[in-house]
Simulated assay, not measured.
Amino acid sequence: MSGDSVAGRLSAPRAGAWARLSPRSRAALARIGWGIASVGMFAGIWELLWAIGVADARLLPPPHIFLGNIPDQARFFNTAQRWQIGVDASAGPSPLGAVGITVAATSMRVFVGLGIAAVLSVTLGVLIRYFTLLEKLTLPTITLLSPVSPIAWLPVAIFMFGIGNAPAIFMVVIALFFHMVLSTISQIDGVNRNLINVARTMGASKRQVYGRVIIPAILPQMLIVLRLNLFASWMVVLIAESTGVGFGLGQVIMLARNTFNPSLVFFTIALIGLLGFLSDLVLRQLQRRLLYWVPEATGVLRGL
């Protein structure tokens, strides 16, 4: 038996298994494979720079160092007991439990703030275009406050809400609200006029035009805006947590900075990146479920 025939018999089941997968499953596996390759290439370049001495392990530890001992890094996440006088630093949950509590606290602030900002901004954006008087009273102020950095609102959040979850959630809301209101207005102005004219020709009232034509038309783009603002939410909540609103990933970053622990810094950065990626994946699946009538991107311009 020749070597070519043996190799053909071994590869045939693999090819058959791949062929039996649906196109969506093959596309998903391909995306996962390319994602692993992309992250692996980045980590490989980092490791190479460390191996040839370009990156100092004391300042820029490579992935095999800050990911090599996860339990040792996880013990620093026990921040809930850290500032209580007379409490042992080892008290409280286990290291992995502390990581779970910290991740859950930060994720809660991100998604609650994102949800509140989305509901308020889309509602106000629609009402501004629906009622002319409301537009004249609110749009100039919204445009005026939109360029203000979220960091400038941090003292306001502490003055209003003190220390706790509320100021962090407020920071997320205020960072997204004004931009999403302006984006909603822009999307409404960009709705195809032919759709509106057809609805009016069929006797639709202004309320029906907004409810049956305009809002469904802007939903796809608004969900894309929501996904983009998700990453901004993660950045803002870390700033808020670093001021000491409670235990969270931002406080762990500040602890790593104050103790000059680069391994903990990059371990937390990797964790934040993973959480952001998973959050975006959830929103993409939600977008596909809700907007079932919108075709998926085919990438027709890739070959140009």
Rank of each mutant, 00 (worst) to 15 (best):
residue 83 W to T: 15
residue 83 W to H: 15
residue 86 G to P: 05
residue 86 G to Q: 08
residue 86 G to V: 13
residue 87 V to A: 09
residue 88 D to F: 11
residue 89 A to W: 10
residue 90 S to E: 13
residue 90 S to Q: 09
residue 91 A to D: 05
residue 92 G to F: 07
residue 95 P to K: 07
residue 96 L to Y: 15
residue 96 L to H: 15
residue 96 L to M: 15
residue 97 G to L: 13
residue 97 G to E: 08
residue 99 V to G: 10
residue 99 V to I: 15
residue 100 G to S: 12
residue 101 I to A: 10
residue 102 T to M: 06
residue 103 V to Y: 07
residue 104 A to D: 14
residue 105 A to L: 14
residue 107 S to Q: 13
residue 108 M to Q: 15
residue 108 M to P: 01
residue 109 R to A: 12
residue 110 V to A: 05
residue 112 V to G: 03
residue 112 V to Q: 01
residue 112 V to I: 14
residue 113 G to S: 07
residue 113 G to Q: 01
residue 114 L to I: 08
residue 115 G to L: 13
residue 115 G to D: 07
residue 116 I to W: 04
residue 116 I to K: 04
residue 117 A to S: 11
residue 118 A to Q: 05
residue 118 A to L: 11
residue 119 V to W: 12
residue 119 V to A: 12
residue 120 L to N: 06
residue 120 L to A: 14
residue 121 S to V: 11
residue 121 S to G: 09
residue 123 T to D: 11
residue 125 G to D: 02
residue 125 G to E: 03
residue 125 G to P: 03
residue 126 V to L: 09
residue 127 L to C: 11
residue 128 I to E: 03
residue 130 Y to T: 07
residue 131 F to L: 13
residue 131 F to M: 13
residue 132 T to D: 10
residue 133 L to G: 05
residue 136 K to A: 13
residue 138 T to Q: 01
residue 139 L to C: 06
residue 139 L to G: 03
residue 142 I to P: 00
residue 142 I to E: 00
residue 142 I to T: 01
residue 143 T to S: 10
residue 144 L to G: 01
residue 144 L to H: 02
residue 144 L to E: 00
residue 147 P to K: 09
residue 147 P to L: 08
residue 148 V to K: 02
residue 148 V to R: 02
residue 149 S to W: 09
residue 149 S to D: 09
residue 150 P to A: 11
residue 151 I to G: 09
residue 151 I to N: 09
residue 153 W to I: 11
residue 153 W to N: 06
residue 153 W to E: 10
residue 154 L to T: 09
residue 154 L to Q: 05
residue 159 F to H: 12
residue 161 F to A: 04
residue 163 I to A: 04
residue 163 I to Q: 06
residue 164 G to V: 02
residue 165 N to H: 11
residue 166 A to V: 07
residue 166 A to F: 07
residue 167 P to K: 04
residue 168 A to Q: 05
residue 168 A to N: 02
residue 169 I to C: 02
residue 170 F to D: 02
residue 172 V to T: 03
residue 172 V to W: 02
residue 173 V to L: 08
residue 173 V to A: 04
residue 174 I to H: 04
residue 175 A to M: 07
residue 175 A to Q: 04
residue 176 L to D: 04
residue 176 L to N: 03
residue 177 F to L: 08
residue 177 F to N: 01
residue 177 F to Y: 09
residue 180 M to W: 13
residue 180 M to S: 11
residue 181 V to Y: 00
residue 182 L to F: 09
residue 183 S to F: 10
residue 183 S to M: 11
residue 184 T to M: 00
residue 184 T to I: 08
residue 185 I to C: 01
residue 185 I to F: 01
residue 185 I to K: 02
residue 185 I to S: 01
residue 187 Q to H: 07
residue 188 I to P: 00
residue 189 D to S: 08
residue 190 G to Q: 00
residue 191 V to S: 00
residue 191 V to L: 05
residue 192 N to K: 08
residue 192 N to L: 10
residue 194 N to M: 12
residue 194 N to Q: 12
residue 195 L to A: 05
residue 195 L to M: 10
residue 195 L to P: 02
residue 197 N to P: 06
residue 199 A to E: 00
residue 199 A to Q: 02
residue 201 T to F: 13
residue 202 M to R: 14
residue 202 M to A: 12
residue 204 A to W: 03
residue 204 A to P: 06
residue 206 K to R: 08
residue 207 R to T: 14
residue 208 Q to V: 14
residue 208 Q to C: 12
residue 209 V to R: 02
residue 209 V to W: 00
